[in-house]
C-alpha cells in the first residue's frame, strides 16, 4: 500500500500542538507504518514538497512570510488541516491584535528589554497588523480545535484520513 504523505507546519504558535501530536503513545507506531512524514519541524526537509496528501498547520498567520508559506502549502496540499486553536481562531497570538504593531514591538524589545534595546529587523519577517486564523487566508478543509487538541483526537483524525475518511473532529473536543 502506498504511504500517505503527511506534512506538519508550525506558524505562530507555541508548538504545543506538535507536542500533542507526538503524545499519542503507541498509536504512533501503527500510524508511522501508514504515513510518510515529508515535511515539518520533526523532519529535515528544507523545501515544502509537491503533492502532499495531508498537511497539519499549527499556529496563527502572523507575518507576511506566514502568508506566503501558507499559500504555497495550500497549492501543494490536497487536504489542509488547521491544527489547534491558534490556527482555528487566532487564540493567544491574536491577543496582540488590538495593539498597533510598532507599539507592541517597542514595548517588548525596547521598554521591556534589559539590554540591546532595539527592535529586530534583519532576518525576521515583518509582522502583519493582526495575527489571524488560517481560514481567513486560504481554504481550510478540516479544523481541529483545542489548546492543544488532544492527542487521541489527532490520532483518530489522521488514521481516519489515512483510511480515506474525513470527519470533523469537533465532537471530541471543545471549541474556543
Amino acid at each position: 500500500m502506498k504511504k500517505v504523505k503527511v506534512a506538519t507546519v508550525w506558524l505562530d504558535g507555541c508548538s504545543g500542538c506538535h507536542m500533542s501530536l507526538l503524545d499519542m503513545d503507541a498509536a504512533i507506531i501503527s500510524l508511522a507504518q501508514k504515513i510518510d512524514l515529508v515535511y515539518g519541524p520533526l523532519v529535515d526537509t528544507q523545501e515544502f514538497p509537491e503533492d502532499v496528501d495531508v498537511t497539519l498547520v499549527e499556529g496563527a498567520v502572523s507575518s507576511q512570510d506566514d502568508v506566503t508559506k501558507l499559500q504555497k502549502i495550500r497549492q501543494r496540499t490536497h487536504l489542509l488541516i488547521s491544527l489547534g486553536d491558534c490556527a482555528v481562531t487566532g487564540n493567544v497570538p491574536a491577543m496582540r491584535n488590538s495593539i498597533p504593531v510598532n507599539k507592541l514591538l517597542q514595548r517588548i524589545y525596547v521598554e521591556g528589554a534589559q539590554e540591546g534595546k532595539v527592535v529586530p529587523t534583519d532576518g525576521v519577517p515583518a509582522l502583519l497588523k493582526q495575527a489571524r486564523p488560517l481560514r481567513e487566508f486560504v481554504k481550510v478543509d478540516l479544523c481541529l480545535p483545542g489548546c492543544p487538541p488532544p492527542a487521541k483526537t489527532i490520532a483518530a483524525v489522521i488514521s481516519d484520513l489515512v483510511d480515506g475518511k474525513k470527519r470533523e473532529a469537533a465532537l471530541a473536543v471543545k471549541f474556543g
Partner: peptide, 19 residues
C-alpha cells in the same frame, strides 16, 4: 458558551474575527 458550541459541533467560525 463553550459547551454550547461543542454540543453543536462547531469546529470553526466562518466570519472574520473582530478583535
Amino acid at each position: 458558551l463553550q459547551s454550547l458550541a461543542s454540543a453543536m459541533g462547531i469546529s470553526t467560525v466562518r466570519f472574520a474575527y473582530n478583535y
